[in-house]
């Protein structure tokens, strides 16, 4: 299952774990990613609050957590090679979260609703 925030972060869910990253649409909008600022393993993130930031040459966006929980892993590959986010944003997640309240997922957009949102943003 994959769900989205309107601010373009996704949560790909496997059991009680959510892989959080940015959508292919967001990655394309940003352009070449040059830096991903992420929390450390063990930090807590809260649904709807920012947990880091992502930067391209021309833009910087805060990253918002789609779900609450503890960070069980930060994708350190992105420190040396942030452009992986552009190559395959769904494969190269940013943090892995042990969810404390999976019911938070209900409030997120499903694929169809998210696609509609992106289509609307493109005008």
């Amino acid at each position: 299952m994959i769900k989205y925030l309107p601010s373009h972060e996704y949560a790909r869910v496997e059991g009680n774990v959510a892989y959080v990253g940015i959508s292919p649409y967001a990655a394309a909008q940003l352009g070449n990613v040059v830096y991903v600022d992420m929390p450390e393993q063990g930090d807590d993130v809260t649904a709807g609050e920012d947990f880091g930031a992502i930067e391209s040459v021309k833009a910087a966006s805060d990253l918002f957590a789609p779900v609450s929980g503890a960070v069980i892993e930060a994708n350190e590959e992105l420190i040396d090679n942030p452009r992986l986010v552009n190559e395959d944003p769904l494969k190269h997640w940013i943090i892995k979260v042990e969810m404390t309240d999976p019911s938070e997922l209900d409030a997120l957009l499903d694929q169809e609703a998210y696609d509609a949102l992106c289509a609307a943003e493109k005008h």
């Binding site: 930067e55 040459v57 833009a59 910087a60």
Partner: peptide
């Protein structure tokens, strides 16, 4: 360089 950190890009952030 690193202009994305700067205020005119980040605005209210």
């Amino acid at each position: 360089t690193l202009q994305a950190r700067e205020q005119h890009i980040r605005r209210e952030k």
